[in-house]
Simulated assay, not measured.
Amino acid sequence: MTVRLRDVTLRDGLQLTGKTLDVQMRVDLARTLLAAGVPELEIGSMARPDLVPPMAGSLDVVAALTPEELDQCWIWVATPRHVEKAIAAGARNVQYCFSASDAHNQANIGRPTEDSVAAMPRAIDLVREAGGRIQLCIATSFTCPFDGQIDPDRVRGIVGDPRTAGADDVVLADTLGQAHPAAVRGLFESAPARDRRLVFHGHDTWGMGVANSLAAVEGGAEVIDGALAGLGGCPFAPGASGNTATEDLLFATRPDYLTPRVLADLITAGESLLAELGESSRSKTAQGARSKAAAFDWVMPSR
């Protein structure tokens, strides 16, 4: 199986930054990632900007991209009304997200999980009418900051619920980065995907981001999420830290489009973003590429 990387810098990667990135910089970064060969991006969120300020202007990013670019892009939604607004702005693909945990869903979206599941058929209908794609995204699929360990049967029940069956993809998220490879592989192997594409969204809080992503692939995932420099985290999940770094996932999986030059360009783009935001890199690959081991093809020339 060929695994695809989806870069989520422009949504999950920016959620916890202390500074908001302006719309043009976000558009430019999206185009840099697409030009590098990254096949899919998450470019923004319909979350309330008063609650998640870095997501303000997400619909302006959508409006600035071409239809061809938007075919490769996803935007986070949590309600049918979010779907309506995103589609009206030009979005083609939405990630309908809620939590396996009631406590986290209440903190993140303001309603019990059952209410989110019950509303999903309407969201699916709206996307189908617009000719787009929709993902079922289950946050806290492994652990919750309030309820602790999540019973895998609860996640499997949501994936197999007839009301979520119309989704094109199923995203299982290790929101807190507390999962371990055996648990990740087991959940992916047992999830009733029903011919839908499986996606793993992992965080690197406990240093397991790359290992968990590879375990997800072994369990059947076709897409893995990452963010440049390991940026990111959920503002409503105490204990969460950054996403697994895009650079690290690419170096581990070696897609056909990845060359030392492409990797260097992505590392440079990540460094420019970090400088703008005043953030630090969590990418081991970026660190290694800046080393003095010049005989290794993937090390970048000295500046």
Rank of each mutant, 00 (worst) to 15 (best):
G209A: 04
W76C: 00
H203A: 03
A237M: 05
V61L: 06
D168G: 14
G44N: 10
A237K: 06
R4V: 07
P49I: 08
G166K: 12
R48L: 07
M46A: 13
P235G: 03
V62S: 08
T17K: 05
T246N: 10
Y257V: 07
L136F: 12
G90C: 02
A215R: 01
T175E: 10
Q95P: 00
R156P: 00
A63D: 03
P145I: 11
F188A: 05
A289I: 08
D161Y: 10
R81H: 14
A215C: 01
D248S: 06
M46K: 08
A35I: 05
G186F: 06
L5E: 06
E42A: 14
S241G: 00
P67S: 05
T205I: 01
L273C: 09
S283H: 11
A179P: 09
D174C: 13
A165K: 13
P145D: 11
A193Q: 08
L33G: 09
A123N: 04
H104M: 03
V94H: 01
R111F: 01
G148P: 13
H203Q: 05
T259C: 09
L65I: 08
L10Y: 13
L16H: 08
R128L: 02
V83A: 09
V117K: 02
V171W: 07
A119R: 06
L126E: 04
N93R: 04
A64S: 15
W298H: 11
R254D: 07
G157C: 13
K19T: 15
V83D: 05
E222N: 00
L214I: 03
Q106C: 00
A56D: 15
T205R: 05
